[in-house]
């Protein structure tokens, strides 16, 4: 572990000012991933700027009919917030599917977006990894890659984004509010995370001197027909092999609107407009769901150990859409898959 300085930011402006003066500094909020990585010598910031005390802890309805979530809202508070439980239960369930209650109590909403991959090689400083050391090579492609990506991969990187919450945020088409030296801007969720390409060291389109201040949810929460299904190697406290967020708006048994996002399969929550479009106007049956799954998994490619994820994801998509259509979302605590 490399030593670092510690300072506190008093407000957002102060945070931006501090990071501008020290490009090798990093913000710390919940710390659940950053401290972990610092201890493994994967991250080595010169300074941690503590933003955990910033007044970004409210969850409020917006005038547009949506909800604005402060970046410092702990994951647990968000999951159990009446506005989220009631109007965006997909988000609540996705959050509660991830990590443990202790970690969710610590982790911030903004920080959740900035989690780094769990790729074994990213974590092991004794092996090459383009994300950790650009240009050193990707060990996972021919290595132990059970947990790695099948979609949107590049020759440089097959890492996945580990968040559950982000899969729901992608499906709900959230907006990320950020502030930097040039002022505030918003980033559509689909544009927030990046594919690895030739620059896998960059996970997101957030600039290094910017800070996430809030996440905005649009009015539509799909609170009637939704489900989040997470498949993993043990029944709790494990990262997803594949997870599916499905949200439907139905007219009888006809699909009026559909949202579908995958976790555990790509460098970002995986969506496809074609897959969602394929569901429009369709009856809620397995044939339609299978077609959507095929669209969503179009171009999927396995790397050996993770080949099974393609078929697993296909079946999981169909299943989750079925749960959403029936209004029987997957339970968090009852592990029988509905």
């Amino acid at each position: 572990m490399i030593p670092f300085q510690y300072t506190r930011a008093n407000d957002v402006a102060d945070a931006i000012k501090q990071i501008a003066t020290d490009p090798s500094a990093k913000f710390i909020a919940g710390g659940t991933n950053l401290i972990d990585l610092i201890k493994y010598d994967v991250e080595a910031p010169s300074r941690l700027i503590d933003i955990s005390h910033l007044p970004l802890r409210s969850v409020e309805p917006t005038s547009a009919g949506g909800v604005l979530i402060g970046a410092m809202v702990p994951n647990t508070d968000l999951a159990y917030h009446p506005l989220i439980e009631g109007r965006y239960p997909l988000l609540a369930r996705a959050i509660l599917s991830g990590a443990s209650q202790q970690l969710r109590n610590m982790a911030s909403t903004g920080g959740n977006l900035l989690q780094r991959t769990r790729c074994f090689y990213y974590y092991d400083t004794a092996t090459p990894c383009n994300k950790r050391e650009p240009g050193s090579g990707c060990s996972a492609i021919d290595g132990v890659n059970r947990i790695n990506a099948i979609l949107g991969t590049s020759e440089a990187c097959i890492a996945t984004h580990p968040s559950d919450m982000c899969v729901a945020l992608a499906a709900l088409e959230a907006t990320v509010h950020v502030t930097g030296p040039a002022g505030a801007r918003t980033i559509a969720f689909a544009d927030f995370h990046r594919l690895p390409g030739n620059t896998p060291q960059r996970d997101t389109n957030l600039e290094p001197d910017e800070i996430i201040t809030a996440i905005e949810l649009p009015p539509k929460g799909f609170s009637e027909n939704y489900s989040y299904l997470k498949i993993r190697d043990r029944l709790s406290y494990a990262f997803a092999l594949v997870s599916v967020a499905a949200a439907l708006e139905l007219d009888g048994d006809t699909i009026k609107e559909a949202r579908l996002a995958l976790g555990g399969v790509a460098h970002k929550p995986w969506r496809s407009t074609a897959a969602e479009a394929a569901l429009l106007g369709q009856r809620t049956d397995a044939t339609a769901f299978a077609k959507a799954a095929d669209w969503l998994l179009h171009g999927a490619k396995g790397y050996g150990h993770n080949d099974f994820k393609i078929g697993l994801a296909r079946r999981a998509i169909i299943r989750t859409l079925g749960q959403a259509a029936r209004g029987k979302p997957q339970s968090i605590s009852d592990k029988k898959i509905r």
Binding site: I28, G31, T32, D50, Q101, M106
Partner: peptide, 19 residues
Amino acid sequence: CTVLVDGRRINSCLTLAVM
């Protein structure tokens, strides 16, 4: 390493004391 901070359970190993 679970302890209660302001009544909530957290992992003290991923928490900096200064914070």
